[in-house]
Design a protein around this nucleic acid. Sequence first.
DNA 1: GTGAAAGCGCTAACAC
DNA 2: GTGTTAGCGCTTTCAC
Lengths: 344, 344
Amino acid sequence: MAATIYDVAALAGVSIKSVSRVLNREPNVSAALQAKVQAAVVSLDYQPNLSARSLAGASSYLIAAFVDADLTLEHWRSGRGNDYLSRLQFGALEECRKAGYHLLVELVDYGAPSLEARLVALLRSLRPDGVLLTPPNADDPTVLDVLERTGTPFVRLGAERDLGRGMRVFMDDRQAAADMTAHLIGLGHRRIGFVSGPDAYPASRARREGYDQALQAHGLVAEPDLVVEGDFTFASGRRAGEALLTTDPRPSAIFASNDDMALGVLNAAASLGVSAPGGVSVCGFDDTPSAMFSTPPLTTVRQPVAEMAAAATRMLLEAARDPDRTVEKIDYILVERASTQPPG
Amino acid sequence: MAATIYDVAALAGVSIKSVSRVLNREPNVSAALQAKVQAAVVSLDYQPNLSARSLAGASSYLIAAFVDADLTLEHWRSGRGNDYLSRLQFGALEECRKAGYHLLVELVDYGAPSLEARLVALLRSLRPDGVLLTPPNADDPTVLDVLERTGTPFVRLGAERDLGRGMRVFMDDRQAAADMTAHLIGLGHRRIGFVSGPDAYPASRARREGYDQALQAHGLVAEPDLVVEGDFTFASGRRAGEALLTTDPRPSAIFASNDDMALGVLNAAASLGVSAPGGVSVCGFDDTPSAMFSTPPLTTVRQPVAEMAAAATRMLLEAARDPDRTVEKIDYILVERASTQPPG
DNA sequence: GTGAAAGCGCTAACAC
DNA sequence: GTGTTAGCGCTTTCAC
């Protein structure tokens, strides 16, 4: 059977408390004792039992990520994949691993009336040391309430708004969209179409604002019929692309609020016999894998999801040590590829 | 503070053992007692503590998925995403959730000399009730040894070979590749290029065999210069596409062993001025999101990763009840899209 | 059918 | 500095 703390203590000839001290790097341990314990740990191949630790102590060595169940399952069923989640996971996983923590992804039914009860159940049974809240539900009041009530530290990912609750890590979606729009203007484009995302996503609204702001800053007017609302799917991008490309005069560039919709625009352009970027420049937002491998490859904004998740996880793990670090802003990168060029 | 089993017992006027019996659906409980306990559970909003349960009992209510760390981090860094992992997760997560289990994704350094020690540490500290092994490491002998030694049930995902160790869920990659090849032959193609994956992946070898087999079955010869090896990346697909499209006579169709490489072939064709599917039909394997949204959308084999993961998770959870169910074969689907057509 | 008591393997308080 | 003791909240064994 696996060794326990008693086995280690016996072999080292010390008390279990001393073993515990060494294991948890508590102060006031002599070098000699520490050496003895460490030797015993190695020779017994001892590994502390997580359940016992979390039952006795204050921490569970578990970080949970709350992910929207409906949205995620819908992504899965439609075969769209979930690039956001996998990138989030990599970032969080790396940090957890370094710190000896484990990451748990939990699907949460945000719409359900039983939401509160289920969250309470989850937090009580798991007692995670921290929770990562993902968009578009990073500011759901029910969730924030439960988290605060149970005293669980949490980070709101991608939350630009400061609610004064929990920690947050975000990027400046508005500025990124403004930069991208300015980039198109810099290339010489004057009629620039915009495919917005659903209003429910705060990030979506921010991107729209950035577009408007950049146009104004360059003395251009945001014409209402150059803005079409999509729902972040390829199909909606395709529809929006068809609408925009059949307006007269045709926009010379189209900026879609995410890559899936940008690919839809590209597809619509191909159907209508408009070449890209020759006939129309197209750019997206997110830098998903599909953006890299499309024809032409997509100019887009790289949203550093993994970095955001890594930063958020670090904040969670270090919250006790550094309680003042409650917000972090992560830089985006404008990735210029072949789908944009000066207007023909 | 959260209610414990003692609170429930006190309120219901029974012993904690009775509460435990009701919670775990053990036999020999009177209806009256059960009703009392359930009422108390509801009124106290009681939720058993996972750590306490797993410390005292035999199960941890945790399922772990072992994922190749290097491969995964490389995917992440290159921005390629990891569609396999996210689909796996959805399938497994759903099943876990239904059964009150939790899913833990663990990055494993398969190449490392410390592999065994780290796995032992992981298994001892977490004590998962089951492990999901993902390709290409689903038959690593070190891992299988440790798993068997610690008595952890495991499922090898995508493992066609029966090692007589653990359970497995797989699809018939060979037959799927043969079907796809036969489909191209059925369209009228006779010179069919093939982009293989790395030999290290068992699935990759199986797909190659399926291609060969279908050609032979239709009286065609597999010409060596029509087969190029890639490494499952877009870039390698692009190179392979260039090589294949500049052979003389040019193949009228190219079958790539995965979608990323098929997109690379599509990109190479565009660069060389060969239209698709007019000039060359292209098809892939996996049905990743990018395959749906490419121009033209890709004909491909849908690998039902989520279904495989769901089946594997069910096998793990029901292993005690149904010890004979050790292998399950999942059906693939040939998805015909616009990237293939009869030769011009 | 039901319950009392003894752990599971740790951490936390407190003594020494 | 180091050890003793008492839990953490459950499941398990074994009486009744």
